[in-house]
Deep mutational scan, measured.
Amino acid sequence: MQRVNMIMAESPGLITICLLGYLLSAECTVFLDHENANKILNRPKRYNSGKLEEFVQGNLERECMEEKCSFEEAREVFENTERTTEFWKQYVDGDQCESNPCLNGGSCKDDINSYECWCPFGFEGKNCELDVTCNIKNGRCEQFCKNSADNKVVCSCTEGYRLAENQKSCEPAVPFPCGRVSVSQTSKLTRAETVFPDVDYVNSTEAETILDNITQSTQSFNDFTRVVGGEDAKPGQFPWQVVLNGKVDAFCGGSIVNEKWIVTAAHCVETGVKITVVAGEHNIEETEHTEQKRNVIRIIPHHNYNAAINKYNHDIALLELDEPLVLNSYVTPICIADKEYTNIFLKFGSGYVSGWGRVFHKGRSALVLQYLRVPLVDRATCLRSTKFTIYNNMFCAGFHEGGRDSCQGDSGGPHVTEVEGTSFLTGIISWGEECAMKGKYGIYTKVSRYVNWIKEKTKLT
């Protein structure tokens, strides 16, 4: 034993070699072989497995989906700052455009905790909710729209109204504003409101030439003092309507412009014939205590009207009353817009006519005020429907199939267009061939041609 100890002390290297040989010859039971080890760690190889990531292109799944990435790591994937920024906006807080917040056709661009709407022409605001041009839906104005110097929408209202708090709607500024039905039992019968379409306001006024200088022999019209197929109006439903009495009662109609003036057809009036105007009328054979009678003290036909040349060209006249009318729910003026808007309103496509005229061709006159909704007829169809001249200051309205029309005794009465609950004068009943005849239409004086003249002559002093 002493000898062994001496050998170990003198030859430590020998001992180490012996131990190493023993270990190498022993069977290893701690580690699995290569094949079995792979069965336990069965993990798919990654895209760049075996390579240094710093030297390969980034992978979106590896960089940002398996674990949260930084902007720089995302930049490695896209290799483009702009594309990385677009991805980053949604990656950080989701897609803010998912709810489609942009209105009126706006395009949404996502941002971090926010979004941006790219608005089409005519709109602005956070969600493109603000109209900035009158060309689109009248700028959301209830009545009139004008573009300011910086191309912003400025709404306005006709006389007797003021802008509401929203700067879009119009509200009454006087007790009985024009064009409004205020009798409670008839307010439910107000005709369907007309909503502004998209309009090209630059070209809204037709490029028409008034044929002022045409000389033409007097034409022989049949029954051209021209509501057939209409309905009984309720008291106060058309408070701007008046009836004219002269040699015979209810020979023509008219509309209240203001307390002192009536507008009617020029062919209705004769110099030297006494005319009485009755406002607030409903049943011409009954006294309903809503009527107001006034005498006409002055007749002003349009300066281009000449019955000797043509009885229905420039067929418009103004009547001055001896005493002002007292405005109330049964006696209310009709609204008159400017030339541009009167023309736009007419193009809405349908209007209402009213009167006490004959209820059928050569038949009896109506006792109760009649009204009828009539569609506008395109000019080409209008011209083809008659052998008589249709001037540019006239328009056609009615039904091709016949059966409904204005008729004798309705002449001078109103053709009105309702705009968001307020009625505007767009025409004056003038003439036609018979009444409600198939293929024939009622012919009306186009008020847009005469609004400046009306307003100039009827100013209240």
Score class of each variant (00 low, 15 high):
2 Q>R: 14
7 I>N: 06
8 M>D: 05
9 A>D: 03
21 G>A: 12
22 Y>E: 01
22 Y>S: 05
25 S>Q: 08
26 A>Y: 04
26 A>W: 00
28 C>M: 01
30 V>F: 11
34 H>W: 07
37 A>S: 09
39 K>Q: 08
40 I>L: 08
41 L>I: 11
44 P>M: 11
45 K>R: 12
47 Y>N: 15
48 N>S: 12
52 L>H: 14
59 N>L: 03
65 M>E: 13
68 K>P: 05
68 K>G: 05
71 F>N: 15
80 N>T: 15
82 E>Y: 12
83 R>F: 08
84 T>F: 07
85 T>H: 03
85 T>P: 15
88 W>R: 15
90 Q>H: 09
92 V>K: 14
93 D>T: 15
94 G>V: 06
94 G>N: 12
98 E>G: 12
101 P>F: 08
101 P>H: 14
102 C>N: 01
105 G>L: 07
107 S>T: 13
112 I>N: 13
116 E>R: 04
118 W>E: 11
120 P>N: 15
124 E>W: 06
125 G>N: 05
130 L>T: 11
135 N>W: 08
136 I>Y: 12
150 D>L: 09
152 K>H: 09
159 E>V: 07
159 E>L: 06
160 G>D: 07
163 L>V: 06
164 A>C: 03
168 K>T: 06
169 S>W: 05
174 V>D: 07
176 F>D: 02
179 G>L: 01
179 G>I: 01
182 S>G: 08
183 V>D: 07
183 V>I: 12
186 T>Q: 09
187 S>I: 10
190 T>L: 05
192 A>D: 10
193 E>Y: 11
194 T>I: 11
195 V>Y: 05
196 F>A: 05
199 V>Q: 13
202 V>I: 11
203 N>H: 09
203 N>D: 05
204 S>N: 08
207 A>I: 09
209 T>Y: 08
211 L>T: 11
211 L>S: 04
212 D>Q: 13
212 D>V: 11
213 N>I: 07
215 T>Y: 07
217 S>N: 05
218 T>H: 10
220 S>K: 08
222 N>C: 13
230 G>I: 13
230 G>E: 11
233 A>F: 11
236 G>D: 03
241 Q>T: 07
241 Q>P: 01
242 V>Y: 00
249 D>S: 07
251 F>L: 06
255 S>Y: 01
256 I>A: 01
259 E>S: 06
259 E>V: 04
259 E>I: 06
262 I>C: 02
262 I>R: 00
264 T>K: 00
264 T>N: 01
266 A>D: 00
268 C>A: 00
269 V>F: 04
272 G>Q: 06
274 K>T: 11
278 V>G: 03
279 A>M: 01
280 G>Q: 02
281 E>W: 10
282 H>D: 04
286 E>D: 07
288 E>A: 07
294 R>L: 00
294 R>Q: 01
303 H>I: 06
306 N>G: 04
314 H>D: 12
315 D>W: 01
316 I>G: 00
316 I>M: 03
317 A>H: 00
318 L>Y: 00
321 L>W: 00
323 E>S: 14
323 E>H: 04
327 L>I: 10
329 S>V: 06
331 V>G: 00
332 T>Y: 07
335 C>G: 02
338 D>V: 03
341 Y>R: 12
341 Y>L: 11
342 T>E: 11
343 N>H: 12
345 F>P: 02
348 F>D: 12
353 V>F: 04
355 G>C: 12
356 W>D: 02
357 G>F: 11
364 R>N: 14
365 S>F: 03
366 A>R: 05
368 V>F: 15
377 V>F: 03
377 V>D: 01
381 T>K: 06
381 T>P: 09
382 C>A: 02
382 C>R: 03
383 L>Q: 13
384 R>Q: 14
386 T>V: 04
390 I>Q: 14
391 Y>G: 15
394 M>F: 13
395 F>E: 02
396 C>N: 02
398 G>V: 05
400 H>K: 05
401 E>W: 13
405 D>T: 14
408 Q>P: 10
411 S>H: 12
411 S>G: 11
412 G>W: 11
412 G>E: 04
413 G>P: 02
418 E>V: 06
425 L>N: 01
427 G>Q: 00
431 W>D: 10
431 W>G: 09
431 W>L: 04
431 W>Y: 13
432 G>R: 05
437 M>A: 12
437 M>Y: 13
440 K>Q: 14
441 Y>W: 06
442 G>N: 11
443 I>M: 08
443 I>F: 09
443 I>E: 02
444 Y>C: 03
446 K>P: 05
447 V>M: 12
449 R>N: 15
451 V>Q: 03
452 N>M: 08
454 I>P: 01
458 T>I: 06
459 K>V: 09
461 T>Y: 14
